[in-house]
Simulated assay, not measured.
Amino acid sequence: MAKVTGKAYISLDGTKLHSKPDGELSVGGDIKKAQTSVHGLVGHSVEEIQPGKITCTLVHTANIDVVALKNWEGNAVFETDTGLRYMVRDAAIEDDITLKGAEVPVTITGRPAVLI
């Protein structure tokens, strides 16, 4: 029977973060659109290239400097509990960082994700 993903772990440059289990990965890359003629499907054209994106909510601890987090740049990994690991290279924190109680929502963007 196949393993089913239940949660994911987020790492920045090899350091695992205390993230909530609802992390998401948007693979990014070529966004294609079907091109048709009177005969039907001709093929697909690339309309745009989107970045890879990891969104998650961190549990804030004394070890997380939100200013340093906002300025972080490097490689991010989205690792599933089924063993698959996806890297978003040349990544950075997108938008502003907001610390609300014990939670810090984070969006990380970079090159399209690749399986490692």
Score class of each variant (00 low, 15 high):
T98V: 11
S37E: 02
L115D: 04
L84A: 15
I97D: 02
I10T: 03
T80W: 13
A91I: 12
L17A: 00
K20I: 02
V104W: 07
T98S: 11
D30F: 15
V46L: 12
A113K: 06
G52E: 01
G14H: 06
T82M: 04
V4G: 08
G23S: 11
P21A: 02
G40I: 07
L58T: 06
V27T: 15
V59I: 15
V4E: 08
H39R: 09
A113W: 02
K100H: 12
L115G: 07
I49V: 10
G101R: 00
K7T: 07
I10D: 09
T107P: 01
V4Y: 09
T82R: 12
S19D: 02
G43V: 01
A68V: 04
A68C: 03
T15A: 12
P21H: 01
G83D: 03
S11N: 09
Q35R: 13
L84C: 11
L58A: 08
G6F: 02
A34H: 03
K16A: 00
S45E: 05
K53E: 06
K32F: 10
D90W: 03
Y86R: 00
H18V: 05
L17S: 00
L58W: 03
V106W: 02
R111P: 06
V46Q: 08
G43D: 04
T57H: 06
F78R: 01
Y9D: 11
H18R: 06
S26C: 12
K3Y: 13
I108P: 06
I93C: 02
D65Q: 10
D22A: 14
I31E: 15
I97M: 07
T107N: 11
H18Y: 08
A62D: 10
T109P: 11
V88A: 03
K100Y: 14
A92G: 01
H18M: 09
G43A: 04
T5L: 06
T107F: 04
A91S: 13
S19H: 04
